[in-house]
């Protein structure tokens, strides 16, 4: 009896929490992020209904059949019923699974855009660095032996390769608004994770692999990049930022940064 009320109350409280605005997704800053939010809302409605239905039924059954000395009437099996709810849940669950693949495909199954700005992302315990190809649009060769974090060459860009002469490295990821961006994620030591909440994107960065990640940001601003895969004692401090700039600001920044590039 009391337990029926409690189950209903807790389910109600849980549900109520979903209607508060305080702890929710951050603003969506890309078409993908908006599609994500839309599909999430659909999923939330479906599982919300299941939640209310199942908890409600539980509470009601407890209340209705509490011991009042009544005779036991229920049956102990019914194949039609069994088949009905099995297929109903199968349809709902698989329907959700299929409906959700669109946003996944949008992130990972679409080919590379030739116009995309390509940026290499390098993770190491406990910092991020970014490499732009420079004016020639091509990344120079890298060489482990040339790595020099203090000297600003954490990628180990090989000075002897002409393509690398204009390569630009930075500690903050800057991209122009509205332009497709293609990140190439690499790690130098352990597994890290590149996460931008506003883009609804998250990708492990695995040593030994180069993993592409594509997005097009549609709103300028500065967004935090928290490392989201346990990488050691500095995991919680491995912070970086994504700065989405207007085309002009970006061009200005790029020109200025380009001038400072000096390789040994």
């Amino acid at each position: 009896m009391a337990i029926a009320i409690l189950i209903a109350a807790l389910a109600g409280a849980t549900l109520a929490l979903f209607f508060q605005p305080r702890w929710w997704f951050p603003e969506a800053i890309s078409a993908h992020a908006r599609a994500y939010d839309a599909h999430f809302l659909v999923t939330l409605c479906v599982i919300g209904c299941i939640f209310v239905f199942a908890q409600g039924l539980l509470a009601w059954v407890i209340f209705r059949y509490r011991d009042r000395g009544q005779a036991v009437t229920g049956s102990d099996g019914n194949n039609t019923l069994e088949i009905a709810w099995t297929s109903a849940t199968a349809v709902i669950f698989l329907g959700l699974a299929l409906a959700g693949q669109g946003i996944w495909a949008g992130v990972h199954l679409e080919g590379s855009d030739p116009r995309a700005l390509k940026v290499e992302v390098l993770a190491k315990q406990f910092a991020w660095s970014y490499r732009y190809a420079g004016a020639d649009g091509a990344f120079g060769r890298v060489d482990v032996k040339q790595i020099d974090d203090a000297g600003g060459n954490s990628f180990g860009i090989d000075a002897k390769d002409p393509k690398g002469k204009d390569d630009l490295t930075a500690a903050v990821l800057r991209v122009p608004v509205g332009r497709p961006v293609e990140l190439h994620l690499k790690s130098r030591d352990v597994i890290h994770n590149f996460f931008v909440r506003e883009l609804r994107l998250k990708q492990d960065v695995v040593p030994g692999m180069t993993i592409p990640l594509r997005f097009t940001a549609t709103k300028t601003g500065t967004y935090e990049v928290p490392c989201s895969e346990l990488c050691g004692l500095g995991h919680h401090q491995m912070r970086s930022s994504l700065v989405v700039m207007t085309e002009e600001d970006y061009a200005a920044w790029l020109a200025e940064a380009q001038q400072k590039v000096v390789l040994p």
């Binding site: 939640f51 959700g100 946003i103 994107l201």
Partner: peptide
């Protein structure tokens, strides 16, 4: 029910891309 139902969110890679970890 309460704990299992969120599995249906995590089970979709498109949504897990935000919620993972």
């Amino acid at each position: 029910i309460t704990g299992g139902i969120t599995g249906l969110v995590l089970g979709q890679p498109g949504l897990d891309i935000y919620f993972h970890d």
